[in-house]
Amino acid sequence: MVSPSDCVIRRTGAAVGAGARRPSYPHPTGSRSAYSARVRRFPVIVGPTAGGKSALALDLAARFGNAEIVSADSMQVFRRMDIGTAKPTPEERVAVPHHLIDIVEPSEPFSVDDWLGRAERVIADVRARGALPIVVGGTLLYAKALLEGLFEGPEPDAALRDALAAMDPHERRAELERVDPAAAARIHFNDVRRTVRAIEVHRLTGTPISALQREWESGRTRPDALLVGLDWPTEAINRRINARVREMVGRGLVAEVRALWEHGVLGAQAREALGYKQLVGAFERGGSEEAIADAVERIKVETRRFAKNQRTWLRRLRTTPGSLWIDAASDPAETWGQRALEALEP
């Protein structure tokens, strides 16, 4: 459930899960001829998980009239991981072409480099056909890489990574706090992958990863893209997260994860996805009703924590020149697409 497509807000403010029918909007009269000749940029839609990004993308596609959606979600790339990653419904994928969904097996690794290369090719192809690519997703590293390029750190050192991963967790944490206090302040104690990478970068370069990332963040944003962000207050997004987890469980999330686990197809990366990780842990402990119920509660907690981390990324992205930010809690959801469409014009 990492970085999934998002819920829709009805006018009452209630969250509707990814499996529910999203509202459809008629194409504004003459929308294609009125806008396509004038629009020179493509939108990159970001926001917290469960915040309505996918609904906005679908609405914008309908209003523009000739658009295709490009997923920027690190877990929607995996086949058969459908409910927990909140993939668009088959009906939505027929109504609007979607790209970079279901492109690799859950046993395979998939990196930001893999996504960026594919995304650039898809965007170029869509634009060559005269359509509007709409990039949308909650994997904010993907969005930042598309807008500003990739952070060029040292090549991974497998032996060093293995040694760091085998360290006592408290000793590993102490080293991170000593060599890079700024990174330690934003990396959770239990986040082994990011902790190992931060220490690895320092050992290989002698420079804290936080300092290298600050240099990366000072780069310019590509001129042919418009960043569109959805702002949500913490309490509101937490309620939406809880509602969506309940909805996913009701749609069969437990059965979906169990089938993938029993067939042994979840690789190291895919099984870390929110929702999948917690339920796999429950199955490995016997899969009792109590263990599964506890896992569902953990999904809610960990997804809310993930949303908190997203807010840090979103604060950085907010400085992007010329970006559009929508107060999602106050502005009616049915107005978001029109605002984005108008902002795309020169």
Rank of each mutant, 00 (worst) to 15 (best):
F78L: 08
M75L: 15
S54C: 12
T85M: 10
P88N: 13
S71H: 03
T85S: 13
S71Q: 05
S74R: 00
V94L: 11
I69S: 05
Y25K: 00
A67Y: 07
R41I: 02
I101M: 02
S31A: 15
V44E: 09
S36Q: 14
I103H: 00
G30V: 04
T49H: 12
F64G: 02
V44W: 11
M81E: 08
Y25E: 10
M81K: 03
F42E: 12
L100Q: 03
V94C: 09
N66I: 05
A50I: 07
H99S: 08
D114C: 03
S33E: 15
K53R: 13
H27Q: 15
A37K: 11
L100V: 09
R21C: 10
G65I: 07
N66A: 15
A61L: 11
L60C: 08
D113A: 15
S36C: 11
F110T: 07
R32I: 14
R93A: 01
P88K: 08
V77D: 01
R118C: 07
R40V: 13
E91I: 04
W115C: 07
K87T: 12
T89G: 04
F64K: 07
A72Y: 01
P23T: 02
P26T: 05
W115D: 01
A37W: 10
N66M: 13
K53I: 12
P109Y: 02
K87D: 08
E105T: 08
M81F: 01
I101G: 00
I45T: 10
I103M: 03
S33F: 06
R41S: 11
P43W: 10
K53W: 06
A72V: 03
T89F: 12
G30F: 00
Q76P: 04
V96M: 13
I101T: 08
I101A: 02
S71D: 04
P88T: 12
V39H: 10
R118H: 08
K53H: 14
P97V: 01
G47Y: 10
A61D: 06
L116H: 09
L100A: 04
G51V: 12
R93Q: 10
H99F: 11
A61E: 03
M75E: 11
V112P: 01
A34W: 12
A72W: 00
E91A: 14
R38C: 09
A72S: 14
P109V: 00
S74Y: 05
I103F: 05
H99D: 07
R41P: 01
V39M: 12
M75Y: 15
